[in-house]
Design a protein around this nucleic acid. Structure first.
Lengths: 214, 214
DNA sequence: TGAATTATTGATCACCTACTCAATAAGAGT
DNA sequence: ACTCTTATTGAGTAGGTGATCAATAATTCA
């Protein structure tokens, strides 16, 4: 393009570039921004070439969402499962989910629910990644309960509540409802009450009511 | 059209028809389906006429959402505030929110969060209606607490949790995540735990642990 | 009945979407 | 150097979006 010469790339390399462009587009402008033209512009290439690599946009939207979601789950899992103690794991999980750097991913999730109505593979990918998230939380909660650290609520239900709060606040963020602090506090305090723990990171007390008033 | 003659309507009447068409379109095919051509087809009229009455589609999307949301809030408020007892009010509220007839409205809400990112008036309308919902719930919760029926959680927080659960499950429904029963149970049981009440409609016990085992 | 008003239309612009197909040309292998 | 494969393009189809403008025609009012 720049020198008037057509760059001809290794197919695998080009395919990867297109998928990366789709991710970038999704994270910066939403899943709905994934289109042949936007991808083409982003890659400095014509639209038919994109169609050559990705013959179905709905499928690309779905696979792009899956890639973003699964990558985040993998990263957060690694971070959350690093500590040995279940309470520390839960704290790591919550703080990772509250990280403002995650905002873009939250927006993509909201897009996925809305678009999932008309895009079956996308809906399926959403369900699958939701199951992955729940599995992570359930594991942590169960471990903590076995260690006597968490209240004896059904882990499945606690996980559902946790992500319902996280997901709802992600949607709220898109329309600037309430402050980030209010949204984060909603998640944290509800979970604290439900599991009877303190999730403040610099607070070792397992039971807030017995912590010293130094 | 039918007889080859152009029907010329009273402007107020036509404007109303367009607004009604927008509501119908939103509830059946989502907020994103509101377009000049879809509206024109629905009204049996040409697109420029729609533009004549609604010169700005983003604004129409926002006002249509506001109309749907506010109408529902008004109806549910009436239903929920009918009983004298706060517990019965809460039960009425929850059962109204769980009504499958409300599914379409839930989808519209999810659309609103997703589209609200690029449509400021829509985001504003969403925030406003969210505040209305919270006000309704806070009133009921506060009344119940004053009567000693509900646990002493901050009403604002309880309301946030309630609607976070309702909103998240509405999103989940769009991608068929879990069963309706699981989603409804999630809302109900979490609220029961949080306020220490029983929300099953044919159950008068205020404290489940003391109810007779007839 | 005639004139003024205006709801409504047809035509068009400018842009977007996905998708197809034949032609071009870059690079690989011989 | 030559052929072969194929990545890439240009051009086009068929539809979608919002929006504007002058012309038409239905209704209202004088």
């Amino acid at each position: 393009m720049a020198a008037g010469t057509t760059r001809r790339r290794n197919p695998a390399e080009r395919a990867l570039e297109v998928r990366e462009a789709a991710k970038t587009l999704a994270l910066t402008r939403g899943l709905a921004a994934i289109s042949l033209r936007n991808l083409a512009t982003h890659c400095g290439v014509t639209a038919p070439l994109i169609a050559h690599y990705e013959p179905n946009m709905d499928a690309l939207v779905a696979s792009t969402f899956a890639a973003i979601a699964e990558q985040e789950i993998a990263e957060v899992s690694l971070h959350a499962l690093a500590p040995d103690d279940a309470l520390d794991q839960l704290r790591a999980l919550i703080s990772a989910l509250a990280d403002p750097a995650r905002d873009n991913v939250g927006e993509v999730w909201c897009d996925a629910w809305s678009l999932g109505r008309k895009n079956d593979p996308l809906a399926e990918a959403a369900r699958h990644s939701m199951d992955s998230w729940h599995a992570l939380a359930i594991g942590i909660i169960r471990t903590g309960q076995n260690a006597g650290q968490f209240a004896a609520i059904a882990p499945e239900r606690a996980a559902l509540v946790l992500f319902a709060l996280v997901d709802a606040t992600a949607s709220y963020q898109l329309v600037n409802f309430r402050s980030r602090e209010t949204r984060d506090t909603l998640v944290r305090e509800t979970l604290e009450d439900m599991l009877d723990v303190s999730l403040r990171i610099n607070d070792d007390a397992r039971n807030p009511s017995t912590k010293p008033t130094v």
